[in-house]
């Protein structure tokens, strides 16, 4: 054992320098040239940062598109899901409560058209996206509150729908924050 102790200590030191010091510094250096400069890409409205492009945020006012429920209340000082099992009765009541509240705020929507993502918690609690379907079923509510024609909002959604990666891989999605920023600019 003793024979191996000194080499162990020295090799630990060497790789601390390589893997924990030089490597992160190199990546941080390259990170300066990325969008957002390695600090996370932000969205700015009227010169004011209103959020990070990738981090979802809470919208519960009727005039905005709503994101998915969050188990961490969209405070990105932490992250995580509900971790509820699929057959947990308390959890199912929770889902039912989300459905009821959605129907109260969106009286024109039929229950069978609510996509499940709008009433279930995301994995990170910070999911920035919803599917196009989840956006379209909120149009009537927003049109009424904002006094806007529905087709104007529909075309806004169409314009903000992000195609699958390379148009081939993965689901379509819409970034809720970007959509709401654009919605505020509609007149």
């Amino acid at each position: 054992m003793k024979k191996y102790l000194l080499p162990s200590l020295k090799i630990t030191l060497v790789f601390l320098v390589i893997c924990s010091l030089l490597y992160p510094l190199l990546i941080a250096g390259i990170g300066h040239f990325t969008p957002g400069g390695g600090r996370g890409e932000t969205i700015v409205v009227n010169g004011k940062v209103v959020g990070y492009a990738n981090i979802g945020q809470k919208f519960d006012q009727d005039k905005y598109f709503w994101p998915r429920p969050s188990a961490v209340a969209f405070n990105a000082a932490g992250s995580g899901g509900s971790n509820k099992g699929p057959a947990n009765q308390d959890y199912l009541k929770d889902v039912q409560a989300h459905i009821d509240s959605f129907l109260i705020h969106n009286p024109t929507v039929k229950k069978e058209n609510i996509p499940s993502e709008l009433v279930t918690y995301s994995g990170s609690g910070l999911d920035p996206d919803i599917s196009p379907q989840a956006a379209y079923i909120q149009v009537d509510r927003i049109a009424k509150v904002r006094n806007l024609p529905t087709d104007k909002i529909n075309s806004l959604i169409a314009g903000h729908t992000e195609k699958p990666f390379l148009a081939l891989f993965g689901p379509e999605k819409i970034n809720v924050l970007r959509l709401n920023v654009a919605l505020d600019e509609l007149h």
Partner: peptide, 22 residues
């Protein structure tokens, strides 16, 4: 059990999952 509640699961089970992955 969510299907039983009468809502749509067009993409599948979404609890704990992220929209961008599916």
């Amino acid at each position: 059990l969510i299907t039983k509640m009468g809502i749509a699961q067009p993409t599948g089970a979404m609890e704990g999952k992220e929209v961008r992955f599916g």
